[in-house]
Design a protein around this nucleic acid. Structure first.
Lengths: 217, 217
DNA sequence: TCTCTTTTGTTGACGCCGTCAACTATCATT
DNA sequence: AATGATAGTTGACGGCGTCAACAAAAGAGA
């Protein structure tokens, strides 16, 4: 009597599923409460029994996306137990390519206010922690090197996320690139990430100022 | 009589300005035709004399954003005539940080159909060409090295765009990073970009397959 | 079994939005 | 002054998110 689970036909679940379909097919901004209601053959107010507002529904979907995303990354990483970040990178890009709209929902859309709910934040942060922990492990998990590891993780994330978004960006379709670039793109990116991490960890990290040339003004 | 320019008070111009204000203040999705009309004290249909639809207005704004963005990048680059890509990078990140919503409009929003207008595409591509040309110049503008230069440009773009979006992403605000990471972030990124480009151009570029390890399946 | 309360779903309204259609005011050109 | 284009107004329509009031259904206690 207190659980509230197990309905005759769990409408809440059905709403989420229908909404995710709409998003995957028509995009985030096309999602409307009335749409999912129509799709389920119920009245336009029924979904409001399970979600306070459109934003709350969106937040729940985002939460699930983060869960799925983290699972996706975890699966690839643990497939051979070595956690090679090239695998991680491939998995990351694959997810973004396969579910572009859900990826955009997580990382490219301003979070609605209900999305600040701790439950969502927890899973979102967890996804980053997968990457971060792999880098910290690389440095032997020494707290002394946490900052270095975090910088590495942010660099990897930047590059992967950047590539993922760029591939979806509309400008991309209009660029005329030199022949042979597109097929080599992913491998080249991974190679450069490797090179950057290797180079940045070997020579003494210079704590000096950014510029080596005096600014003009 | 044929130019159509110079009205008593150029309403088209005023619409664009008002719309950009709304976007900068309230976000892209908050922009409404009726809002700009209200803001200008005119009837809700007046803007339609100058823009076929909301999407056409949005497209015009995007076009101007790309123009501004390219100008912004050009200005920094030519300030000392050397086109150091660290300057470019700083300029890129600075723009994204200063006009986050306009940046999102250009690179993070699905283009409405009217945005495929050649005029817009032209300026969007031009912004990328600034980056690409600087890389091609690095290789002495030899067509033989265009592919390499384009890969470099895409890598730089990925990393910069990734960092720019990540800094705006909502997840970022919830990450607890090791102390000292945030202040070092930008410099570290530039340093890693440098390292990646240097390393990838020095050793013989391996044209071999992506993986060095046989795939598990 | 018959109430009584809580939960779940429906109907109808409100104000906002984008946009179409029809009307009017303004103004350069003949 | 007459004309025809151009710019702006008013009013309507359907779709949206959401509030409020109602109805049906389901559990719990007697």
């Amino acid at each position: 009597m207190v659980t509230g689970r197990k309905k005759s036909f769990d409408l809440k679940e059905a709403c989420v599923r229908a909404a995710r379909e709409v998003i995957a097919e028509q995009g985030i901004e096309a999602l409307s409460m009335r749409d999912v209601a129509r799709k389920l053959g119920i009245s336009h107010q029924a979904p409001y029994r399970h979600f306070e507002s459109r934003d709350h529904l969106l937040a729940e979907i985002m939460r699930r996306c983060f869960v799925d995303f983290a699972e996706h990354l975890d699966r690839r990483k643990s497939s051979d137990g070595n956690g090679d970040h090239e695998d991680m990178g491939s998995a990351y890009l694959a997810y973004a390519a396969q579910k572009p709209l859900e990826y955009r929902l997580m990382f490219g859309t301003p979070w609605p206010e209900p999305a600040r709910h701790p439950e969502l934040v927890k899973y979102a942060v967890h996804a980053f922690d997968i990457l971060r922990n792999s880098q910290r492990a690389k440095y032997g998990d020494l707290p002394t090197h946490y900052a270095k590891a975090d910088l590495d993780a942010l660099f990897i994330w930047s590059t992967l996320h950047g590539m993922a978004s760029i591939m979806q960006a509309n400008v991309m379709q209009h660029l005329v690139l030199a022949p042979g670039v597109m097929p080599r793109l992913k491998a080249d990116l991974m190679h450069k990430i490797d090179a950057a991490l290797e180079a940045s960890s070997r020579p003494a990290p210079k704590p000096g100022p950014t510029r080596r040339k005096p600014a003009t003004r």
